[in-house]
């Protein structure tokens, strides 16, 4: 997903000289190829996120669209004040390209696991948050960003995800994509959880439970009009995210449901229980540890009915 997105940014930058890319001490050679072709659009800075965001803001004030790339935890927490004051107060075209959303970097420990990033970004007025489900959707999200005014947080998943997105369903920032129509249950998911939600749907279908899947690739803005039509249709809604349950997709969903005046379905948020995971291991193991694997999610659905 990361490479596909980088290639897509390069494609945009090749056709539009207003598009810049700044990396923060990325892995060796990450942008060599791009930099050799577009030396005035590709920059590598040091490990200095606060400076990076201020710099990107300065460039954006001059009319540039600036992609800034480093690891999600550092790109959100370390420079939060710069994001709020330099970027968001002026609604600038800064694009945060955040590696390792969720527990991708599980072996590296809590410093590198982004479980509060979406929550932090959601609190910033004007920040758009996109968490695509696979590399193809990431490419479509990057393409869509070119005509978008205002800052965007792109949250990357692991890479090599099973492709579940479909070109024919068209990608539009802020518009969730219905991958499967619901009967009794609707699952809201994004990132790596979209694939899991679809698998859960298959398992439960065999048991006679009709489970729909809505890919909420854009966590913010999440307009209630995209959810309300389902509220009176289904018995239960579950949000599933590779993120803490506070402040992310689950919270965004809960806010819409809580303010809905009609009959509400049962609702549950699945995610990490507002913790910083203190395990190492692999991404899938941590996801399982917190009950977010396919079988556990299926059980949560059953118990909600």
């Amino acid at each position: 997903m990361r490479k596909r997105g980088l290639a897509e940014i390069f494609k945009l930058a090749s056709a539009n000289k207003e598009i810049l890319f700044i990396g923060s001490d990325l892995g060796e050679g990450t942008i060599d190829e791009y930099q050799s072709v577009l030396p005035k659009q590709y920059f590598m800075e040091g490990i200095s996120e606060a400076n990076l965001i201020g710099m990107a803001a300065g460039l954006a004030m001059e009319g540039k669209q600036v992609f800034v790339n480093t690891i999600a935890t550092f790109l959100t927490r370390r420079c939060f004040d710069q994001l709020a004051m330099d970027v968001c107060t002026s609604n600038l075209n800064v694009r945060l390209y955040a590696n390792g959303g969720g527990v991708v970097y599980a072996p590296l420990g809590p410093t590198h696991m982004a479980v509060d990033d979406i929550s932090l970004m959601r609190s910033l007025p004007g920040m758009t948050i996109i968490h695509p489900s696979d590399a193809e959707e990431m490419a479509r999200a990057i393409q869509a960003s070119e005509s978008h005014q205002g800052p965007i947080y792109f949250r990357l998943a692991r890479g090599g995800e099973t492709v579940t997105s479909r070109k024919d369903l068209e990608f539009e920032i802020g518009k969730p994509i219905l991958l499967k129509k619901p009967k009794e249950v609707l699952l809201l998911a994004n990132g790596t959880m979209v694939y899991r939600a679809l698998e859960v749907s298959k398992i439960l279908e065999a048991e006679g439970i009709g489970v729909g899947v809505l890919n909420v690739h854009t966590v913010k803005p999440f307009d209630k009009q995209h959810l309300i039509p389902y509220l009176s249709e289904v018995e239960a809604i579950l949000s599933i995210e590779e993120h803490n349950i506070d402040g992310g997709l689950g919270s965004a969903t809960a806010e819409i449901i809580a303010e809905y005046s009609g009959n509400r379905p049962r609702f549950k948020r699945l995610g990490f229980p507002n913790i910083y995971p203190d395990y190492y291991g692999q991404q899938d193991l941590i996801i399982s540890k917190y009950g977010l694997n396919i079988l556990s999610i299926a059980q949560e659905v059953r118990s909600l009915l």
Partner: peptide, 27 residues
């Protein structure tokens, strides 16, 4: 900056202006 003609950057949170200036100079 949005309100004041001639004001290049909104400041007040200290330690921000030099990085913004670097972006402008790099431009």
């Amino acid at each position: 900056r949005e309100k004041i003609p001639g004001c290049e950057a909104s400041t007040g949170s200290l330690g921000h202006g030099l990085s913004i200036a670097i972006g402008m100079a790099l431009n």
